[in-house]
């Protein structure tokens, strides 16, 4: 079942309140998204750790409800 971009944003913000988030619906089907997430919480973390933090925020939706979310994460410049 598709997931709304706003729901994705909300879940990420619950876990990373300072995050700047940009979500694009790639195919217009509510199922394939690309997200850029910038948060201070990522500083000093490896990319794998950063992505794991976002996946944790999505509470199991990733790979389930949400089929594809291309992720790009970083700490603020």
């Amino acid at each position: 079942m598709p997931m709304d971009a706003r729901d994705i944003e909300k879940l990420i913000l619950e876990a990373l309140p300072d995050a700047r988030i940009e979500i694009r619906d790639l195919a217009g089907d509510g199922d394939h998204y690309a997200a850029t997430v910038i948060s201070e919480a990522f500083r000093g973390k490896s990319r794998v750790q950063q992505h794991q933090m976002v996946y944790a925020a999505l509470k199991g939706e990733m790979g389930g409800e949400l089929h594809a979310l291309a992720l790009q994460t970083s700490a603020p410049e």
């Binding site: 990319r47 794998v48 992505h51 291309a70 992720l71 790009q72």
Partner: peptide, 11 residues
């Protein structure tokens, strides 16, 4: 473990 599709492409 090095990464999934996004990380591999970025790297």
């Amino acid at each position: 473990f090095v990464g999934g599709a996004d990380i591999i492409r970025e790297m």
